[in-house]
Amino acid sequence: MPTRDYRKKISLSESGPGDAGKTGSWRIVRPVIDPDVCIPGRRKAPACYICWLYCPDGVISRSVPPRIDYQHCKGCGICAEECPTKAITMVEESSFIKE
C-alpha cells in the first residue's frame, strides 16, 4: 500500500504548527515576549528556549530573540507560565483590536 494512501487511513500528526488548522483564531490572550528580559534577547545569542520546548503547538522559534507564530499560537499561556525570567506577558487580544 503506498505511503500516501496509508497515511490517510490512520490518524497521524506531525510536530509543528498547524496540525489542527489555523489555531491562532482560538486565542483570547496573546503571549508577548519582552526582548529586554528574555535571555537570548539580552545575550544576543541562542540560549534557554524553555518556551520553545513547552509550547504544545510548536509555534515558537529558536531565534534571537524567539518569535511566536500568531497564526497558530492558541493563547494557552504555557510559555508564559514556564519562562524562567517572566519575559512573556499574556495580553488581552481585545487590546490589539483597539489599536
Binding site: 500500500m1 503506498p2 505511503t3 494512501d5 496509508y6 497515511r7 490512520i10 490518524s11 497521524l12 500528526s13 506531525e14 510536530s15 509543528g16 504548527p17 498547524g18 496540525d19 489542527a20 488548522g21 489555523k22
Partner: peptide, 26 residues
Amino acid sequence: PYALDPADPSNLNTVTMPDGRADVRG
C-alpha cells in the same frame, strides 16, 4: 508503508475530531 522514525517524528492515532482537520501541510 509507514514506520515510526526518530528522524522524522510523528504521533500515531492521536485524538481525532468528530470532523476532519487540517494537518501541518494544510
